[in-house]
Design a protein around this nucleic acid. Structure first.
Lengths: 230, 230
DNA sequence: TGGTGTGAATGCCTTCACAGCG
DNA sequence: CGCTGTGAAGGCATTCACACCA
């Protein structure tokens, strides 16, 4: 392996038309590959990768086939190599500096969440309307009043922002983000933003995730079973 | 309207076999209906509900049709009434007390996040292995060492837990949750947990959401369709 | 032998189109 | 007249099955 001559380059593709679900799974593959690599594993088969993620082997292979040929027949995929390929596909072989907007409870926590930087998304700035929330300082993070947004975006080359303001303010602040040149928004406010089509939007609604859980619990016939033994 | 005699009860259904995507959208409908209600609106048509969410009108109607008939021909849906129906479907007309496991950066923030309680998921307990993290106290929340998990689960009737521990510890702690009788887990650790099938699992990977954003930004030389989220 | 890559088949979800009704 | 509810059609994603290869 050790990638002497890879027989097939990554396919030049119409990235546009790739199903969203596929891209989503790519992230999962990447996480698992990183974990396996960290554990010293060299290669992995589609069926094993699938099993740990609760998917089917053919789905893994089909997903990857959208982007090229990465496997070795009879042997599977080289973990480190495939991880690198997925990073290239996702665009995370480069660093994406991120700004957090809204430094309340959640925003502050996100400033300190290490998982972002570990995956190529260092948080370089935090902004809030209320200047009192700009204290205390956070090492490595520029804290500024919201009005300086454009400056921050420009000087730090920020293209994506995490929006963690109250729902009531979210649309207005989102408009300001667009104004300032932000191209992608990760929205934590439980509201449906309307934005110009060229601005990418991903929504995370934490209460909603619990609702999904509640739904399955409420309708599982296995009501309130006692703690399983063993 | 004022719901004199609703002509059709909610359909008795095979809740199990309803597509996951439908249940997911139900949460979005609920959010939007709550917002419209708060703005004093009385009724809304499927097409308007759809438009604010970036969906199609027929999709809204089809989704709801899984569960019964909620609309009024020629008039649309009664916001408050439909919201109540969706809450019944999701199981959130009842209160679901939740425990947060892991009181690091993220866990602490989630303790204080109001959006949970507002949607029927009050956080009643926080647990951590490290006793130092149990300070300072949080009003209304019981903070305990992880070893007291079973007690807490029993005395507070907790069925769902939010898992916010480091990835390296996540599987082990998840096993303990199952032991203690937890039936649903919202997992923030960037790792694929393996659990007995009767335990429900929802995964939120924050870095992954940024990866999705990065993907679209990295490949956005050409036009994509508008985000399904809006 | 073991496992990839991929057409073909399947099944599911979404969209269409319109009957039906207030 | 407006808008729901719903069979039918269409499109898309997943799974199957197997040729092919190291």
């Amino acid at each position: 392996m050790a990638g002497k001559r890879r027989r097939a380059a990554m396919r030049r593709y119409r990235w546009q038309q790739i199903p969203e679900a596929v891209v989503r799974r790519l992230s999962y593959y990447l996480r698992e590959l990183e974990r396996q690599t960290a554990q010293g594993r060299d290669t992995i088969s589609s069926s094993e990768l699938a099993r740990t993620l609760g998917l089917t082997d053919s789905q893994v292979r089909k997903d990857l086939a959208f982007f090229g040929q990465f496997g070795y027949r009879g042997r599977g995929y080289h973990c480190r190599e495939l991880a690198a390929a997925i990073r290239r596909i996702l665009g995370t072989e480069k660093i994406w500096p991120v700004a957090v907007i809204g430094l309340g409870n959640l925003g502050r926590a996100l400033l300190g969440y290490r998982g972002f930087a570990e995956h190529g998304f260092p948080i370089v700035a935090g902004l809030d309307i209320d200047p009192r929330r700009l204290e205390p300082p956070v090492p490595g993070v520029v804290l500024r009043p919201l009005e300086q947004l454009s400056d921050v975006v420009r000087t730090l080359s920020v293209r994506m922002a995490i929006l963690a303001v109250p729902a009531a303010a979210a649309q207005e602040v989102a408009d300001q983000l667009v104004q300032a040149g932000i191209q992608g928004i990760l929205n934590f406010a439980p509201i449906s933003l309307s934005l110009p089509p060229q601005v990418r939007l991903v929504r995370v609604d934490l209460a909603m995730e619990l609702e999904q859980l509640a739904y399955t619990l409420a309708h599982s016939r296995a009501r309130r079973r006692p703690p399983p033994d063993s």
